[in-house]
Structures are given as structure tokens and as C-alpha cells.
């Protein structure tokens, strides 16, 4: 019973964070572009996301005539559900993990890739050429970028000697944060994570100026909201994963600051990496699809391999 209650609390907390994330996203983009961002709904526009959500919920549920109906309905759920599932293995604070799985990192990577299925299914089911191209791009992109992502995470696993995310954080408590020995791995992971999240400069699957809206073209209302929700939850989940793997999770930057609860440190780190993509989005244009593949296969994967070998050598001889 407490586990179920915990899950509900988690869901609510994450939903709250996502609401906040959308607001921060729009505010930050606004400020970086000389605008104010949302100002009209609630004090400082704080209720903007709620207004948007309500608007999406009360929209007519449009299913175009030519779509594959079961798949069209299923796709948003496939895309959205895993985003919450992965949060279960994230260690928020000492002892605050909803499922302390032995192979936590592997679980995260495996479940996260299910979302791609939802995207492909949605793009296919919509029976729209833009959706299809978007979905295929997404498939190619995910396949390419999961490799460097996993390879660079693997180096962290080597360092910690465990796939369990709690153990990885504890290993960092004994030595230093892994971002220092794994600086190269961190950069690779960050780039690959951006591609996984479909954020600028790798937002090719919904590249507005090219593909109208990619796989989302035919989606509206609640279904669209589900895709968006999934996307923002992933943003937070990925931030949490980066914080866990490379920045010591709940650990304070210095033992003298240990009086601040671990969850605060964790949230600061995770939210920083969840917000970072917004800044990149405000600055960078979109890469081209062939350049993206080239970067993954010719750049990141060899580098990640080198990083892995170096880590192994470091681990063996030091």
C-alpha cells in the first residue's frame, strides 16, 4: 500500500514539475528573445500551463478519416507511459527510490527506448506523409544515438562497478563526481541525450520549418497533450539521469554543505540539466539529418569507444 501511495505522490510531483518546466521553458525563451513570456494568466503568468492544458483537454477529439484508428489511439500512450516508468529507478535522495532495481541504468535505457515505438506508431498511424517522414527520422535518430548514449554510460558503470543507480551515486561519494574522470564521456552523453530527447539542435522529428510538425502533424487535443507531457517528463528524467551518473545525484558539492537535504541537491542538479536544453534551443539552429547521422556514427560512437577503453585501462592499472 505505501508503495502505491508513493507512486501516486511521485506522479503528482512530476506533473507539478512538468507544469513548472513548461512555464520556465516559455519564460526563458521569452527573456532570451527580448520578450516577457507568459504574463496574463495568473500572477506572472504562472497559470499559463494550466490554461494551456485545460484548453487542450476541452478540444474536440479529432481523428482524421484515413488513420489507423487503434494504433492512432494507442501511440500517445506508448509514447507517454514509459516516461513515468523510468522515474521509478531514479534515486531522488538516500533511500528515496521507488524501485531499487539492480540493473537500474539498463532498465532506464531499455524502457526509454519504448517511447520511440510510440513515435513511430503515431507517425505511421496518422497516414500523413509529414508524419511518416518525421517518424522515420525519429527511428533512425534513436537507433543511432542510443549507441553512444549507452556506451558513455557504460564507462560510468565501469567506474562504479554497478548498474544500480543508488550504487553509482554511492560510488561517487567515495571518490569524486564522475564528471571529472569522465569529462569526455559526459560531453558525449549530453549530446546523445539531446538527440534522444529530440531537442534543438537535433529536433529533426518535429522540425517545424521542414516537416510541419513531424509525427505530431495529425494529433490535436488530449493526444497531443500526451505526447507533449511525455516529452517534458523525459526532459526531467534525463536531467535526473545526468545528475545521477555524472554529478553525484543527491550528494552535496562539498561535505560541509551536507546539512542541506539530499533531495534539494538532487533537484537543483536535475533541473539545471532539464533547463539547459531550453537555452540551447534559444541559440542553435537545427542540424541536417545526414549530418546528424554522421555525427553519431563517425564522431560520437568512436569517441565513446575510446572513452570506454580508457576507462577500462584506468580502472585496471590505477
Amino acid at each position: 500500500m505505501p508503495a502505491a501511495l508513493g507512486a501516486v505522490v511521485l506522479l503528482l510531483v512530476v506533473l507539478g514539475l512538468v507544469t513548472f518546466a513548461v512555464y520556465v521553458h516559455r519564460k526563458l525563451l521569452g527573456w532570451m528573445q527580448g520578450r516577457h513570456g507568459p504574463t496574463h494568466t495568473g500572477p506572472y503568468g504562472l497559470l499559463q500551463t494550466i490554461a494551456d492544458t485545460v484548453k487542450l483537454l476541452q478540444k474536440e477529439d479529432v481523428i482524421p478519416a484515413q488513420v489507423d484508428r487503434p494504433l492512432f489511439r494507442l501511440a500517445p500512450i506508448i509514447a507517454f507511459a514509459p516516461s513515468f516508468v523510468v522515474l521509478a529507478v531514479i534515486p531522488f535522495a538516500p533511500g528515496l527510490t521507488f524501485a531499487d532495481v539492480g540493473v537500474g541504468l539498463l532498465f532506464y535505457l531499455a524502457v526509454a527506448s519504448v517511447t520511440t515505438l510510440g513515435v513511430i506508431a503515431g507517425g505511421w498511424a496518422a497516414n500523413n506523409k509529414w508524419s511518416l517522414i518525421g517518424a522515420l527520422r525519429s527511428a533512425a535518430q534513436m537507433v543511432s544515438y542510443e549507441v553512444p548514449l549507452a556506451l558513455s554510460a557504460l564507462a560510468v558503470v565501469l567506474m562504479a562497478g554497478s548498474l544500480n543507480l543508488n550504487a553509482i551515486v554511492e560510488a561517487q561519494a567515495r571518490s569524486v563526481w564522475f564528471v571529472i574522470p569522465q569529462a569526455l564521456g559526459f560531453v558525449i552523453f549530453l549530446i546523445a541525450a539531446l538527440a534522444e530527447l529530440n531537442r534543438t539542435p537535433f529536433d529533426l522529428t518535429e522540425a517545424e520549418s521542414e516537416l510541419v510538425a513531424g509525427y505530431l502533424t495529425e494529433y490535436s487535443g488530449v493526444r497531443f497533450a500526451f505526447f507533449m507531457l511525455g516529452e517534458y517528463v523525459y526532459l526531467f528524467a534525463m536531467g535526473a539521469l545526468i545528475a545521477t551518473l555524472y554529478f553525484g545525484g543527491w550528494l552535496p558539492p562539498h561535505p560541509a554543505l551536507a546539512f542541506v537535504p539530499g533531495i534539494v541537491w538532487f533537484l537543483i542538479k536535475a533541473l539545471f540539466f532539464a533547463v539547459l536544453p531550453f537555452w540551447l534551443q534559444a541559440t542553435f539552429p537545427r542540424a541536417r539529418v545526414d549530418q546528424l547521422m554522421g555525427l553519431a556514427w563517425k564522431g560520437l560512437i568512436p569517441l565513446a569507444m575510446v572513452n570506454l577503453v580508457l576507462t577500462a585501462a584506468l580502472k585496471t592499472w590505477l
Binding site: M32, G34, R35, H36, W279, L280, A282, T283
Partner: peptide, 19 residues
């Protein structure tokens, strides 16, 4: 070039808004 670009957008946050 990428980093300089990030600098530009970052500074813009503290400039007066034009809206």
C-alpha cells in the same frame, strides 16, 4: 562559435524587454 552564441542569448536575458 556555439559557445559565443550561447553568450549572446544569455546576455539578452538581462536586457530590457522590447514587447
Amino acid at each position: 562559435g556555439l559557445l559565443k552564441g550561447l553568450g549572446v542569448t544569455f546576455q539578452e536575458m538581462f536586457r530590457p524587454k522590447v514587447t
